[in-house]
Design a protein around this nucleic acid. Structure first.
Length: 472
RNA sequence: GACCCCUUCGUCUAGUGGUUAGGACACCACUCUUUCACAGUGGAGACACGGGUUCGAGUCCCGUAGGGGUCGCCA
């Protein structure tokens, strides 16, 4: 049997982190099993569904690198098929019309609550003759749930979970306006799409019991269920769009690499011994849904960034140049021309170990492509003011004739420091301040080589001459 | 409230009856060092609690506590 999984988001907003992980697990399982991963847009809530959200979800999945098979199914387009199933059940006596009004149901629930009873539809129209139907109330169609026995789910993650059928109320299949409810739509679509494994958030676990009864009523084989634990926020509560869950594009904008995101999400609820760095191809090889844990986990940004730093160091230099240039343009408002890209490329090996995100990397690299004269930050200015400027002025004439390689420049700096009985840092820091405008940068002699003789000397001259440099 | 689920360092996890309870992030110290990082070494840090079962329990059973989820003509 070929495994078919699906990711079924409702397009009422961006693709948030929990949805992204659900998608990842479905994708990984399908790829691991050599099956298919399908997409279904659950847009039956016409009021809240938007095309913009659909686009964002697609974009989010694409960014994450989760490719789906076949064209996405739009649930609303299948409404007639769903209604047909409801009518069939009605004809077979497995479902019935319910004429209870909204107000009536509200009262019923309020009364149940007040009496300390379980709140659920009481089946008031279950055995009532439709001839008693009130005028002008468009009826809903409800499924006749079994009232005895129990419903059992052998969940791949949660294990055997059983609920007594008395807990299940007769759920609405078709609304008064003839449109299908979510409960009906998911079951019909999962069946029609040939979904073999439903992997979704734990918050759907209790829905599954009722869905199983719908499968049974239709004489269909239920899929295998796997309810994965939710991701919680720092406060331990369910992460949702209105509760701290950020869209995946936000992580992208924070400078996270998609491969880092995948690795991080994978480790939330799933592990493989002591392995932490798990590239995607390895994940496909190792991942199995039965190995997913049952307890919820919390988002840990520090770990995400740590992982991101790792993938950043491994990433291809040219790819990084493009990504970092984009951030420099967007965040720092500068342009990065051919020469600028060249500088970034050469500096990449020094930039990599210093960044945990593309944003960090851009911050650390921007001085390379800034036009002169550079802004000098307060700490750097202090170094220049406290003797650094004088030293540079003193050294400048000799520097012109040096061999301009990192190694030669470093040797020269060491000799110079020795000759003056200074520590190397005393020579290096003023140069760093002049070249980068900061006290923090990649190894400064590397920077000198990358920037080149002319630019380097010009920046040092700027620093020497501008006693009141443009401080930030 | 009812039903369902969960509970190992602060966080993510390994662990499936006998371990000095392992790893990772974060934290602290040290090493490296021209700054900052990276890297390396070391350190502190956990089986929620109470009963069983067993020669022996983080591992099995039952309670308790805490947390979460669901109870819509939303999905």
């Amino acid at each position: 049997m070929t495994v078919v999984t699906r990711f079924a988001p409702s397009p009422t907003g961006y693709l948030h982190i929990g949805g992204a992980r659900t998608a990842l697990f479905n994708w990984l399982y399908a790829r691991h099993m050599g099956g298919k991963f399908l997409l279904r847009i659950e847009d039956t809530d016409r009021a809240r569904s938007t095309q913009d959200a659909v686009d964002k979800i697609f974009a989010g999945l694409e960014w994450l690198g989760l490719d789906w098979d076949e064209d996405p199914v739009h649930q609303f387009a299948r409404a007639e098929r769903h209604a047909e199933v409801a009518r069939q059940l009605l004809a077979e006596g497995k479902a019935y019309y319910c004429y209870a009004t909204q107000e009536e149901l509200d009262e019923m629930r309020a009364a149940q609550r007040a009496a300390g009873q379980t709140v659920r539809y009481d089946g008031r129209w279950r055995d009532r003759d439709p001839s008693e139907a009130p005028e002008g109330v468009p009826p809903v169609i409800r499924l006749k749930m079994p009232q005895d026995g129990e419903t059992r789910i052998d969940d791949q993650v949660q294990g055997d979970v059983t609920v007594s059928n008395g807990q299940l109320d007769d759920m609405v299949l078709l609304r008064g306006d003839g449109t299908p409810t979510y409960m009906l739509s998911v079951v019909v679509d999962d069946h029609d799409m040939g979904i073999t494994h439903v992997i979704r958030g734990d918050d759907h676990l209790t829905n599954s019991f009722r869905q199983v009864q719908l499968y049974k009523a239709m004489g269909w084989e239920p899929p295998v269920f796997a309810h994965i634990p939710l991701i919680h926020g720092q406060d331990g509560a369910k992460l949702s769009k209105r509760h701290g869950a950020l869209g995946v594009e936000t992580y992208r904008d924070m400078g996270i690499l998609p491969e880092a995101m995948r690795n991080y999400l994978l480790r939330l609820g799933w592990g493989h011994g002591d392995d932490e760095i798990i590239p995607t191809d390895q994940a496909i090889d190792w991942f199995d849904i039965v190995d997913v844990g049952r307890s919820p986990s919390r988002m840990d940004m520090d770990k995400l960034f740590n992982l991101n730093g790792h993938y950043l160091r491994e990433a291809d230099d040219e790819r990084l140049v493009t990504l970092v240039a984009d951030v420099i343009v967007d965040k720092h408002g500068l342009t990065v021309d051919q020469h600028g890209s060249e500088l970034l490329f050469q500096a990449m090996k020094d930039l990599k170990p210093r960044a945990k995100s593309l944003v960090d990397m851009a911050d650390g690299a921007v001085f390379l492509v800034r036009p002169r004269p550079l802004p000098i930050d307060a700490k750097a200015e202090k170094i220049l003011a406290n003797g650094g400027r004088d030293l540079l002025a003193d050294l400048l004439p000799a520097m012109d004739g040096l061999e301009w390689t990192a190694a030669a420049l470093e040797q020269w700096a060491r000799d110079t420091a020795d000759a003056r009985e200074l520590k190397l840092g005393k020579v290096a820091q003023p140069i760093r301040a002049a070249l980068s405008g900061s006290t923090v940068s990649p190894p400064i002699f590397e920077v000198m080589e990358i920037l080149g003789r002319d630019e380097s000397l010009a920046r040092i001259r700027d620093a020497v001459e501008n006693t009141q440099s443009n401080q930030e």
